[in-house]
């Protein structure tokens, strides 16, 4: 333990946001399954409660998305740096990271990426989160908002191509999010211990076994 190196990786708002989202998205998936397949899946007593819960959870996730967006763009001001891979990462980083996950991880080599508060995601994570946070979540929220206001927003829905297309997009995006969730949870257990990546999402602090690259021992605060 004494060779552990601690980094303050996840500031409080990010953690609140993350767990709110996690809870919301799991609720949405579970209720969503009942809403789409009511004759097979009955988790909540009445269909109406499934719909109401789904709508509420949808609003919570949409609101928490806005919170996140606001936090990163106006308070932390490091949205682009955190989520958009730079040229080097695109050219080499992704490959390096993919090589780690697909090969060197199994050989027991260390993760080539060392999270710091200003660069906490590895290049693959960045690309994945970019797609999730800038495409999937906003689109699924927007289609959801349209679906809960069909009559008032009819013209907009017609502009998109119709209710069916909207529902189809909403459903397939939700499936993508669900697929992402499995991968996300699994990859979160790939730290040097199964909980090494999950704990910082709860406490904020990531503990990394000391490696030759990590010189500074001082916890780094995130506020800049």
């Amino acid at each position: 333990m004494n060779s552990q190196h601690r980094v303050y990786l996840q500031p409080t708002p990010v953690r609140i946001w993350h767990w709110l989202n996690a809870f919301g998205i799991v609720t949405l998936i579970v209720t969503g399954v009942q809403i789409r397949f009511p004759e097979y899946v009955v988790i909540f007593a009445s269909y109406k409660s499934a719909i109401m819960l789904h709508n509420t959870a949808g609003l919570v996730v949409a609101a928490s998305f806005s919170l996140w967006f606001f936090y990163y763009s106006f308070i932390a001001r490091n949205m682009l740096k955190t989520y958009v891979p730079n040229e080097d990462e695109l050219r080499h980083g992704i490959l390096r990271q993919a090589k780690f996950y697909l090969l060197t991880y199994f050989l027991g080599w260390p993760n080539p990426h060392h999270p710091t508060p200003e660069n906490k995601f590895n290049p693959m994570q960045k690309s994945a989160y970019l797609a999730i946070m800038f495409v999937l979540v906003p689109l699924v929220s927007l289609t959801g908002l349209l679906l809960t206001n069909v009559e008032p927003l009819r013209n907009l829905i017609i502009l998109i191509g119709g209710l069916k297309i909207l529902v189809g997009v909403h459903f397939l995006l939700a499936c993508c999010l669900c697929a992402f969730l499995f991968t996300h949870v699994y990859l979160a257990t790939l730290g040097h211990t199964a909980f090494a990546y999950i704990k910082p999402m709860w406490t904020g602090w990531e503990e990394e076994p000391e490696t030759e690259q990590n010189a500074h021992d001082e916890p780094v605060s995130n506020h800049r």
Binding site: R36, F37, E39, G162, K164, F171, L172, C175, C176, F180
Partner: peptide
């Protein structure tokens, strides 16, 4: 323009969704 949640879902989309989730 007609969709009733829970009763007019498309089977084709169900399969595509299942493939996506299986991918995950």
């Amino acid at each position: 323009d007609f969709y009733m949640v829970g009763s007019t879902r498309s089977t084709a989309l169900n399969y595509i969704g299942a493939v996506i989730i299986a991918g995950g």
